[in-house]
């Protein structure tokens, strides 16, 4: 029997702040193709500056990594970043296995892990107890996975993300506190066409 006692409120005391991590991650990355998972990761990316090559999800929970995979396979010449949360990823945990089979070298996933469902009242996710998302990805065959929990490692994250062999997944342990809402546009058809126009994709293709 394992010891199931755990401090599931520990993320209240995590030092890293999500907005600062994301702002540093997205600085000087104008060419990056970005998919953000629903909820706070979409707000964080918007706070760092809404842009044409970001597709923010407002729903489709559990689909962010799969969407990033489809994009990465379609655009092997481009770098694709999926920025999502622990609750969103837990709903699509099987997608880590699918990525492990495909091994897209141009895909990175950053999980902003506050161990909470931040949009619904801060209820604990499984990462508040025993689930280690970096270990799950590693077990699915991702070549590079790691967890960031303090400032020095956070400072190294933007460079390390693309120097490690892909696909790579970094879990960033962030404080549970919610930040002020900064929302991207929410018309899905407009967001989709904006993204495709930025890539100069022709209609119907």
């Amino acid at each position: 029997m394992s010891d199931v006692r755990v401090d599931d409120s520990r993320s209240d005391r995590y030092p890293l702040r999500r907005r600062e991590v994301v702002a540093a991650l997205l600085a000087d990355t104008e060419e990056l193709l970005i998919v953000t998972g629903l909820g706070a990761p979409s707000w964080d990316a918007a706070a760092a500056g809404d842009r044409d090559r970001t597709f923010p999800l407002w729903g489709a929970m559990g689909g962010a990594v799969s969407m990033g995979l489809g994009l990465a396979l379609a655009r092997p010449q481009d770098r694709v970043l999926v920025l999502t949360g622990d609750g969103e990823l837990l709903m699509g945990l099987g997608s880590l296995s699918t990525v492990g089979s495909q091994q897209p070298a141009n895909l990175a996933v950053v999980v902003l892990d506050n161990e909470r469902y931040g949009e619904t009242g801060g209820q604990r996710t499984h990462t508040a107890r025993h689930t280690d998302l970096a270990a799950v990805a590693a077990a699915c065959g991702w070549p590079s996975t790691w967890t960031v929990s303090e400032q020095t490692a956070a400072d190294e994250l933007p460079a390390r993300l693309w120097s490690e062999r892909g696909p790579r997944l970094a879990v960033v342990k962030i404080a549970a506190a919610n930040e002020p809402l900064v929302m991207p546009p929410r018309d899905g058809t407009w967001l989709k066409e904006r993204f495709r126009r930025a890539l100069q994709v022709a209609p119907h293709s």
Binding site: L33, M67, L69, G70, L71, A72, A74, K192, F195, A202
Partner: peptide, 13 residues
């Protein structure tokens, strides 16, 4: 996963 995957593929043309 396939629904999201193919949406991502379409984003990329």
């Amino acid at each position: 996963e396939g629904v999201a995957l193919l949406a991502g593929a379409w984003l990329g043309g």
